[in-house]
């Protein structure tokens, strides 16, 4: 039987959730028995090579590229899982939701105490993705099937959920594996 394929990505996240995934330690050897990694920063594949059973999304959507990538994950993955508080509720990047975008940009590129920008220009290269008006939780952009909260989710939470999903078992998390911090 061919192995299930799994894709992962970090959108507006800090890679902490991916670090937590690596924190499953030697169980990673069991994980590679269960899955083949498709698009993921873990193997540095930049695009999908085929259909995936599971997609893990770290981070919310803060720019147009995040939205494109998230939609592409939705298209390619049977089960999409929001991992971490940023994917679920925006997380720390969503602190900017209380400040108008223009003010954010001006603080970052013009007025901030450490800014040196004599031309007074804001970034406008077409290579730089446009920012959204605010940071959106992933499930407000595409349908998400499962949620694993935490900042980051504990390695044991990721392990418990992944092994259940990959072996067609119901995901049942005991009390101590649900954390929002």
């Amino acid at each position: 039987m061919s192995k299930a394929r799994m894709a992962t990505v970090s959108l507006a996240g800090c890679f902490g959730c991916h670090m937590s995934l690596l924190d499953i330690d030697e169980r990673i050897l069991q994980l590679v028995e269960l899955v083949e990694f498709d698009r993921s920063p873990i193997n540095d594949f930049k695009s999908f090579t085929g259909r995936c059973a599971v997609g893990l999304i770290e981070g919310g959507c803060c720019n147009e590229e995040n939205v494109h990538v998230l939609r592409s994950f939705r298209e390619h993955c049977d089960v999409l899982v929001s991992i971490g508080d940023c994917a679920i509720m925006g997380g720390l990047p969503a602190y900017r939701n209380f400040v108008p975008l223009k003010e954010c940009m001006e603080e970052a590129y013009l007025n901030g105490p450490t800014v040196y920008n004599p031309s007074g220009e804001l970034p406008k290269d077409r290579e730089v993705p446009l920012l959204l008006n605010k940071v959106y939780p992933c499930h407000e952009v595409v349908k998400i099937d499962y949620y694993l909260p935490g900042c980051p989710p504990p390695a044991d939470t990721l392990w418990a959920a992944l092994t259940a999903l990959l072996t067609d078992q119901p995901v049942e998390l005991p009390y101590e594996l649900i954390k929002y911090d």
């Binding site: 929001s82 509720m89 925006g90 939780p137 949620y147 909260p149 929002y180």
Partner: peptide, 15 residues
Amino acid sequence: AYRFGILAPKYQYQF
């Protein structure tokens, strides 16, 4: 929320 096993709220965030 932990006791009720809530993994994500079902409503839209208001910010």
